[in-house]
Simulated assay, not measured.
Amino acid sequence: MFKKVTIHNDERGLLFRKGNYYKLLQPNVYRFSAFSEDTVVVLNITKPFIVEGKDLQLFMHDEGLLQQLDVVHVLDHEYVLHYEDSKFCGLLTSGSYAFWNVLKKHTYVHIDIRKPELPAEIDAALLPKLAGFYQAFEVANHESGALFYNHVMQKELGPGKYYFWRGPVSVAVKTVDLRQLQIDMTGQEMMTEDKVTLRLNFVCQYKIVSPLRIMAIKSFEEQLYIQLQLILREYVGTLKLDDLLKMKQEIAAFVLSRLQEKSDDYGVLFLSAGLKDIILPGDIKDILNTVLLAEKKAQANLITRREETASARSLLNTAKLMDENQTLYRLKELEFLEKICEKIGTISLTGGGNLLEQLNSLLGDRSR
């Protein structure tokens, strides 16, 4: 009685004698006694060398077997890219692997993941097959980025997409917006020199020119806001309310000049600043409205008196001319008579004499 084992061309056999590996069997037909304790494990050489329940190291003493195997050891800090006949097959993590080298040519790319950035030789077309083993970060066209390994900054990144291995090194990318930005200060309470509390609405535009400097400042926007507050308080606190209202157009220029002195400290370029509103307390607003109304009434009275004086002076000059020139006087009388006649429908004359003599009698005789 015999046990028959057939090994095909795309197969290899592993002979075990009394449970221990004995030797490699090439393609052929083998017969073993039915009472023999020999067993054969047949493996397909198009697949990885894996013997269930057996460690790879049990087969490393067989030189004949090792000639037909590629044995790959992947360290804890490595990934290995596995290619079969120049086609990507898979990614190997830490451990030991064996592949038959009989029908296919295997190549391996060892990658040290302690250097997280993906090497340039890795084709971007492989990335979908590497999902879960890498992470991606994007820096937009209007941004600048900073690369950190284990919370230590490495370098500045321009716009683009960047890929890093997931491994023992923690990777982070922080981005900074390089577009024009704005600080809006709304309803900020401040006190003038004469102890009047008012509220300001102020706006300031700026651009970041040194992204790495920004990264070194904790709560950058908050610190910039506080700096703007301090400059405004410095300006408002040295002026009385009346002076502040007269000089409010100068606030923006003062604040912008002071901010520009701090540009290098904050790594920004301050572009413009402007005062939107000054909001006064209700009682102060009522007082100012009363003062303004009184001033306008005084101006109106002054204009009225000026016009009355000019009118009286004009009448006096006319009277003097008429007194000195009889012809002018008579013309003025005729002018008024004409205005009167425009408002009269009919004129009735009685008595003798012609029309001109009766009109003369109405005007009176200036020769007497």
Rank of each mutant, 00 (worst) to 15 (best):
30 Y>I: 00
77 H>G: 00
87 K>M: 07
93 T>G: 14
45 I>Y: 08
50 I>M: 09
67 Q>V: 00
139 V>K: 07
123 D>H: 06
69 L>W: 08
73 H>L: 06
128 P>G: 05
78 E>P: 07
89 C>N: 11
37 E>R: 14
88 F>N: 06
72 V>K: 12
59 F>Y: 08
135 Q>R: 13
39 T>M: 11
99 F>D: 03
30 Y>F: 10
79 Y>E: 02
118 L>G: 05
142 H>C: 02
56 L>V: 01
82 H>F: 07
134 Y>V: 00
61 H>P: 02
112 D>Y: 02
83 Y>P: 14
54 K>P: 00
43 L>R: 13
92 L>V: 02
94 S>Q: 12
142 H>R: 10
149 Y>W: 08
150 N>T: 03
30 Y>W: 01
142 H>W: 11
73 H>V: 06
139 V>Q: 06
140 A>S: 13
85 D>N: 15
57 Q>W: 10
101 N>S: 12
58 L>P: 06
148 F>M: 03
119 P>W: 00
36 S>C: 08
149 Y>F: 12
85 D>R: 08
69 L>P: 06
114 R>H: 07
56 L>M: 11
52 E>D: 14
133 F>N: 05
73 H>R: 13
130 L>G: 03
80 V>R: 12
35 F>V: 11
139 V>S: 05
104 K>P: 01
52 E>Q: 13
109 V>I: 11
53 G>K: 12
61 H>E: 11
68 Q>G: 13
116 P>T: 01
113 I>M: 00
